[in-house]
Amino acid sequence: MEAFYAGTLGVMVASGVYLLLRARVFPVVMGLTLISYAVNLFIFSMGRLGTDTVAVVGSSETMGDPLPQALVLTAIVIGFAMTAFTVVLALRSMGEVGTDHVDGQEPRA
C-alpha cells in the first residue's frame, strides 16, 4: 500500500508543479491546491499509514501518531486561507492592471 500511496503523491505533486509553472493565475492557484493536498498527505504519512488506529483513547487497540494529524488539520485550514488570499490578490491585481498573467502584464508578442 505504501508504494501505491507514494506513487499517487508523486503524480499529485507533478501535476501541481506543472500547473504552478503556468502563466495565468487560475491554473497556478489550482496547482497550489493540488500541491497542498499532496503535502498534507505527505506530512500525514510521516505518522505512517494505519488501519483502525484512530487516535481516540479507548476506541482502538493501537493508536496512530496524533501529532502529524494535528499539524495537518491546521495546515488544511491555513492552506485554504492562503489560497483565498492568493486568488483575491490576483483579482485585485486584475482590477488594477487588467490582466490575469502572473507577471502583471501580457507577454510581449
Binding site: 508543479v17 505527505f42 505518522g47 505512517r48
Partner: peptide, 26 residues
C-alpha cells in the same frame, strides 16, 4: 521535466520514509 522530477522525488522520499522504522514522541 521539472514537474516529473519533483513528483518522482516526493514519491521516493515518501516511500523511503514510510518503509523505515521510526521513533515518535506520540
Amino acid at each position: 521535466l521539472l514537474a516529473g522530477g519533483m513528483g518522482t522525488l516526493v514519491a521516493i522520499l515518501a516511500y523511503a520514509v514510510m518503509t523505515r522504522p521510526y521513533d515518535s514522541i506520540a
